[in-house]
Amino acid sequence: MGKLGKYYFMKGFNSINTFLPDTRIATKSNIRAMLRLYESLYLKPDEGTGGHGIYKITKIKNKYTLRSGTASKQFNSLDALYSSLHKQFSRNKYIVQKGIDLLKHNKRSFDIRVMVQKNRSKKLVVTGVIGRLAKPGKIVTNYHSGGTPLPIDSLLVSHLKRDKREKYIKRMEILGKEASNVLGKNYRSKRAFGVDIAIDSKMKPWILEINTRPDMSIFNTLKNKTMYKRILEYSRIKG
C-alpha cells in the first residue's frame, strides 16, 4: 500500500484514527475543498521516501503559494498552480494532506521518528525515538533532505518542563507502538516500522506516515549510540 492505502486502512481503527490528518487523492477538487478547511496543505507522492517531491500549498486571500525545498512560487488561481504540477502528477500518483503547524526549535520546524521493531517473541517494541529538525527555510524535516537528527528531549525543552517532557515522550512511544500494531495487521512479515509524528502548536500529535522500511542510520548520528546499538541488535533477529 502507498500512503493513501495505509491512511484508509488505519482510519478504521478507533485507537489511532483521531491522530491521522485528513488525507485524500490529490485532485483539483480535493485540493480546493481542503483549502477551505485548512490553512495549509502538503502534496506528497503516494509512493516515495526521503522527503522528495513534497510541496506545500497555502492560500492568502486570492493568492496561492506553492513551496518546494526552499523555493516559493505564487499563483493567481488554483488552476494555474495545479497546471504547474502537471508533470509531477503525470509521473506519480499524489496525495494531499492537511498541513500541520509544526512545533519549532530555534525557529525551525521539527517532528519525531519513533522506531518500532519486533523482538524474538515477534512482539513490537519501541527501540528508538529521535527528533528531526528541518533545515532553515525547508518544508520537510527528512535527514536526506538536509534535516538534523537530534535527541527529542532537547527539541521539547522550550515547550515542556522536564517531568512533562518525559511523560510526553512516553506518550509518543505508546502512540508509535499502537500505530505500528495497527499497520502490522496488514504487514505481518515486516519486522520494523518508522512512525513519523508531527506535533502541532497545541501539543497534539499527528501520525504523518509509517515507513515499513525505516532508515536506521539517522540514529547513528546521535552522540549517544545506545539507541542505535539497540536498533541494530533488533534488526539482526531472524524469523
Rank of each mutant, 00 (worst) to 15 (best):
I169K: 02
V140N: 00
T148M: 03
L124G: 09
L150H: 05
R162H: 15
V157C: 09
E166R: 13
N119V: 06
V182P: 10
E173F: 06
K177E: 12
K164Y: 13
E173N: 09
R165H: 08
T148H: 07
L155G: 04
R120I: 12
K164W: 10
K122H: 13
V182L: 05
K170D: 14
I139C: 00
I174N: 13
K123F: 13
S121N: 15
L155M: 06
H144T: 15
A134V: 03
A179E: 03
S145Q: 15
V114A: 04
K118D: 09
S145M: 14
L160C: 08
T127L: 04
V157S: 12
V182R: 02
S158G: 01
T127G: 05
P136L: 06
L175I: 08
P149M: 02
P149K: 02
T127V: 02
K177A: 11
A179V: 09
L155A: 08
L150W: 00
Y168A: 01
K135D: 14
G137H: 04
K167W: 09
Y143A: 11
K170N: 15
M172H: 09
G137V: 07
V182T: 07
P151K: 03
T148P: 00
L133I: 08
N119A: 05
E166L: 13
L150I: 04
K123T: 11
K123R: 13
L155N: 04
I130Q: 00
N181D: 08
T141D: 02
V157Y: 09
R162P: 10
L175F: 10
H144D: 11
Y168P: 00
L133K: 07
N142R: 04
E173Y: 08
I139H: 03
A179I: 09
R165E: 05
R165I: 11
K123Q: 13
R132W: 01
V129P: 01
H144G: 10
Y168R: 01
L160Q: 04
K122M: 07
E173L: 08
L124K: 04
Y143K: 12
K118R: 11
K135H: 15
R132Y: 02
V114F: 07
V116H: 01
S158N: 09
K161H: 14
R120Q: 14
V116E: 00
S180V: 07
G146M: 00
K170H: 15
K177I: 10
S180Y: 10
L155C: 04
L150Q: 01
I139K: 06
K138Q: 15
K164D: 14
R171L: 13
T127W: 03
M115H: 02
L160P: 08
L124C: 09
I152F: 08
G128F: 06
V129L: 09
V140Y: 08
Y143P: 06
I169A: 00
K122W: 10
L133S: 01
